[in-house]
Structure formats: structure tokens, C-alpha cells
């Protein structure tokens, strides 16, 4: 447990907290999706980097890389699907 690990874990949690504050403060669904898509993925990336620096083993690095690739491939697709739903049902006002 070095200082670098704890700082990375803390920064990742702070970015997830920022995403939830953005979910609370933005006014419409599309802007809320900006917050959850970008900041959450970046926070998870920082937390996984902290986990890799803590364990320092090859298999954990491979698993963390898999999780990062999954998250970064699926987060924009989920946002795309949700926004299509919002525009089809037409309830994007507040």
C-alpha cells in the first residue's frame, strides 16, 4: 500500500462522486448522461489503476485491462440506447 495507490483510489472515488453531483444538478436527461458516461468511466479507470499498483501481479493487470475495455466499449452504447429511448418517448423536459 503505497501513497500512489491510495491517491489513485481517492481520485477515482471523487470522480464517481462528481458524476453523481452532476446527475443531481443538471437540468435535462441528455446533460445528465454527459456526467454519468464520462466521469464514471474515468473514475473506474483510476480505481482500477490503483488496484493494479497495489497488487502488482500479471493476472490482476490482465483482469483490470479487461474491465477497462468492457466499460469503455459499453458506456457510450448504453448512453446511445438511453438517448434513443428518451427521444422516442419524448419526455426530455425536466
Amino acid at each position: 500500500m503505497t501513497a500512489l495507490t491510495s491517491i489513485l483510489l481517492f481520485l477515482g472515488s471523487v470522480f464517481i462522486l462528481i458524476a453523481s453531483i452532476g446527475l443531481l444538478r443538471f437540468r435535462e436527461s441528455f446533460s445528465r448522461m454527459h456526467a454519468t458516461t464520462k466521469a464514471t468511466s474515468f473514475g473506474l479507470l483510476l480505481i482500477l489503476a490503483g488496484v493494479v499498483f497495489y497488487f502488482l501481479s500479471f493476472i490482476v493487470a490482465i483482469k483490470a485491462l479487461l474491465v477497462i475495455v468492457f466499460v469503455y466499449l459499453t458506456a457510450p452504447l448504453a448512453a446511445h440506447s438511453i438517448s434513443k429511448t428518451v427521444r422516442n418517448t419524448g419526455k426530455n423536459k425536466r
Binding site: 453523481s20 446527475l23 454519468t36 473514475g43 480505481i47 426530455n92
Partner: peptide, 19 residues
């Protein structure tokens, strides 16, 4: 307010649990 906001929040809940 709408159900789409609830889907976005649910997506964020899963990420928080992962963290």
C-alpha cells in the same frame, strides 16, 4: 421525473457498487 432519469441513475448505482 421521468423513467429515463431512473435508468441513468440505475446505471450509476451499478458503477458505484463496482467501485
Amino acid at each position: 421525473p421521468s423513467s429515463s432519469d431512473r435508468i441513468i441513475a440505475l446505471d450509476l448505482v451499478v458503477s458505484v457498487v463496482m467501485g
